[in-house]
Design a protein around this nucleic acid. Sequence first.
DNA 1: TCTACGAGTGGACAATCTGCCTAGTTGATC
DNA 2: GATCAACTAGGCAGATTGTCCACTCGTAGA
Lengths: 162, 162
Amino acid sequence: MTIDELDARLITLLTEEPRLGMLECSRRLGVARGTVQARLDRLIDRGVITGFGPDVSPAALGYHVTAFVSLEIRQVAGHDPVAHRLARIPEVLEVHTITGGSDLLCRVVARTNSDLQRVIDVIVDVQGVLRTNSIIALDTPVPYRVLPLVADVPRQEGRRPS
Amino acid sequence: MTIDELDARLITLLTEEPRLGMLECSRRLGVARGTVQARLDRLIDRGVITGFGPDVSPAALGYHVTAFVSLEIRQVAGHDPVAHRLARIPEVLEVHTITGGSDLLCRVVARTNSDLQRVIDVIVDVQGVLRTNSIIALDTPVPYRVLPLVADVPRQEGRRPS
DNA sequence: TCTACGAGTGGACAATCTGCCTAGTTGATC
DNA sequence: GATCAACTAGGCAGATTGTCCACTCGTAGA
């Protein structure tokens, strides 16, 4: 399941100027409106585009501290029950099960460093959590982005003689 | 800088049904259209909402493997030059400078486990990178989300008698 | 108490866009 | 040569947008 160059250009365009309507997109991309609509619909129901939600900045809400907290858990019950409980903590933005010495990796945010202590305490209190280890993100020189990847896919496909 | 309950409801609504226009939002929220527009504009230029870009799933593009790679770097030149070079790798989705034993933490994706080896090789090749340590995300029981946080902010403000 | 001000309401307007449809090309496949 | 998917180009009614306006309401200050 892959995308072609027009798809990539469409995604790039929409990422850079999300307020654009279909009509304007078709003008920018130099294709017919119906094509843009068809492409977008296909991208959405193939699952490439999962949504158009507003991107909210936790920092702008006062959550200036980001940390990665790795957890060791009591494994008898499995990961899911713990993950499920972690999901109830608003400050936990993301949970992964991982390889290596720990079992779970969470991205958490907090208002300040001492607020982070509070959040970690809440996490430690979660049933099944044995230990935590926190790493604070001091700065984010490359914020989350997918565009380079999107732009890269059709290039790779192009090179690969099908 | 904070948000009130109406802001939170608006963000929630837009997250759940991003295709909605302003008019429909105003109907759902039970306020006037102008209010919704004013709120949204304010959220955007206060930086709470940073964009409306399409959310792209790397997995749907064939990048089924996610990993967190922590890097030790030669610190004489600082973090930035290395981060700048890492930014040129499409598979590197995110880079943070961190506390603890390592200097940088990257989120990377790859098509397969062996493709991950290729990506890591590219990272190791980056000038200034001394060592890497990779952790593979096996599963993501809680995918990135901010909604609980958004819903929580006005509650906290409410409790706090100003 | 009176005034100013920010925020919200409700309505109006032209311009634009959307959803949906039709008909004709094109290129690849069988 | 026929078929099919994808694209182009256009038309149409209905909905939405951006942008006004006048009015109300609650708060804070004079």
